[in-house]
């Protein structure tokens, strides 16, 4: 555990909590892609199956359970409790174009051809692109609520911090996991355009709106 890893995890946790609170307090999931949230629930489910097979630490177990629990709570709020506010017309990204290739890739390129390892690889690949339906939705509507941009910033920052964590671990522990690193770089790059808008607009007190 190093400072980048810890702050990365906390940034991830902050993102998840921000989204849950935003939906809960405003009693609305307008502007939120339910498809991205389903993908994240799928990501956590397939990645944390090792909860059943091995114990790493209390921190590890608690965080995994919190992430999974919050992911399903978010999906429940969007598709059940506040379904009336869900903007399905704008959430039109075709997720099969992500899930099918990612599934194929995880079978082809993995560390070990075993069910649990393939599912872990699937989750790593899927996480790297799971935000695309959300970004697609924002590009379609041309705007995002400020609180939604805070959520996206924390979510993007988390994987960027993990990149520093992997650099740290490579130098000080000789550890590296090429699958996680490549997927992590892809994931972070997908946020770059958003990071730019966040810094130049949202942090200067303006609403995030895209030119028509």
């Amino acid at each position: 555990m190093n400072i980048f890893r810890l702050t990365g995890d906390l940034s991830h946790l902050a993102a998840i909590i921000i989204l849950l609170l935003k939906i809960w307090k405003s009693r609305s999931c307008a502007g939120i892609s339910g498809k991205s949230q389903i993908l994240f629930a799928l990501v956590f489910t397939t990645r944390y199956l090792d909860l059943f097979t091995s114990f790493i630490s209390l921190y590890n177990t608690c965080m995994k359970l919190i992430y999974i629990g919050c992911a399903y709570a978010t999906v429940y709020l969007i598709y059940a409790k506040f379904r009336a506010t869900y903007d399905g017309n704008h959430d039109s990204f075709r997720v099969e174009f992500l899930v099918v290739p990612v599934g194929g890739l995880s079978v082809l390129i993995n560390h070990d051809f075993s069910p649990l390892e393939i599912l872990w690889t699937f989750s790593i690949y899927l996480e790297s692109v799971a935000i695309l339906p959300q970004l697609f939705m924002i590009s379609k509507t041309g705007e995002a609520e400020t609180i939604t941009t805070h959520y996206l910033f924390c979510l993007g920052l988390y994987r960027a911090l993990y990149l520093f964590n992997w650099i740290w671990r490579f130098y000080f522990e000789g550890f590296f996991d090429m699958i996680a690193i490549v997927a992590g770089v892809v994931q972070t790059v997908l946020y770059c355009d958003f990071f730019y808008l966040y810094v130049t607009k949202v942090l200067k007190g303006k609403k995030l709106s895209l030119p028509a």
Binding site: D9, S54, F55, I56, N60, D112, E117, W120, Y162, N165
Partner: peptide, 10 residues
């Protein structure tokens, strides 16, 4: 590198 088994990172 631990290939199979539990993962430390989240």
């Amino acid at each position: 590198r631990r290939v199979t088994g539990g993962k430390d990172e989240l």
